[in-house]
């Protein structure tokens, strides 16, 4: 059966307008919760970029000079092999390291352009049996010929990962609670809409309107609320991201520049936010329609 677009638009916007205050409350709750969820996602991606060199439980980084000879590199390698404290290690050659550098610095194209592959230091990534051995093992290599630098600052990385995971957990928990309240708000808006239109619904049933014809305007009402909330949240996520960019580049906070996420990650986050908005809006109204609209 044909449902005219005009009818659906008229009914849905009429319902939204009649319950505009409650609709606004639902939309705002959705935007706040989704903005939080989006921010948590960006934080997670930023931290994962900033700590990518330490992935896989790496506790010790030995950077070689970019111009270290094969003999010097092999010497370090065989020494690592012989040490009993070491569980495993791997070698990141210059070209792999350059790829990683490009990824890390994706947000600073000028920097990437100014550095060539031959300037990048290759490195050994070392996993120890006992993380506490990192300083003592590291110091063994500090003075070795061909070694540029040794980094065993795993503790700071661990603290950062720990703190961000707590922050993330709190944000996500808050977002989930708010999303649940948003669905309940939407459910309630739709319930009120159904109640205030019960006479129309009764007449519709009497004259033979199909169930979907009766349901669709109410379902769309929830969907629109979820979508509008999600769009506001998506705008907020872009806002947060560009504010961060601005702070980093304007105040030259280089420490934070490691946390910059790629535009691909931002797009994925926005898609997630919009999808969640649609899901929450539709779920809330679908539940209300099932529960309160006896068709």
């Amino acid at each position: 059966m044909a449902i005219s677009l005009e009818y659906v638009v008229k009914e849905t916007s009429g319902n939204l307008w009649r319950n505009r205050l409650m609709s606004l409350a639902a939309v705002l709750t959705i935007s706040v919760s989704l903005a939080l969820a989006g921010a948590a996602l960006l934080l997670k991606q930023g931290v994962s970029t900033a700590t990518s060199q330490w992935k896989g439980g790496v506790q010790l980084l030995i950077f070689m000079q970019p111009n270290a000879t094969a003999a010097q590199t092999n010497a370090v390698s065989s020494q690592l092999k012989s040490l009993p404290e070491i569980k495993s290690y791997f070698y990141m050659d210059q070209s792999k390291s350059y790829q990683e550098f490009k990824q890390l610095m994706a947000n600073s194209p000028e920097l990437v352009k100014s550095v060539t592959e031959s300037q990048i230091p290759p490195s050994f990534r070392v996993v120890l049996k006992n993380p506490n051995d990192a300083p003592s093992v590291g110091s063994l290599f500090q003075q070795q010929v061909g070694v540029k630098d040794v980094n065993f600052n795993r503790g700071a990385i661990n603290t950062m990962l720990h703190v961000t995971s707590i922050v993330q957990f709190v944000i996500v928990a808050l977002a989930v609670v708010l999303l649940i309240s948003a669905s309940v708000l939407i459910l309630n808006v739709i319930r009120v809409a159904i109640f205030s239109r019960r006479r129309e619904v009764a007449v519709m049933k009497l004259v033979g309107a199909t169930n979907w014809f009766i349901r669709i305007p109410f379902m769309l009402e929830g969907l629109v609320q979820g979508l509008v909330g999600a769009i506001v949240a998506a705008a907020a996520v872009v806002g947060i991201q560009s504010l961060f960019h601005y702070v980093v580049s304007h105040f030259q906070v280089t420490v934070l520049s490691n946390f910059l996420v790629s535009s691909h990650d931002v797009v994925m986050t926005e898609l997630f936010v919009v999808a969640m908005g649609i899901i929450v809006g539709t779920a809330g109204s679908a539940f209300a329609v099932r529960r309160y609209l006896e068709v």
């Binding site: 059966m1 044909a2 449902i3 005219s4 009818y7 129309e200 007449v203 519709m204 004259v207 033979g208 309107a209 014809f213 009766i214």
Partner: peptide
Amino acid sequence: AFALEVIG
């Protein structure tokens, strides 16, 4: 008219 509208 409503009776006709809602059956499309």
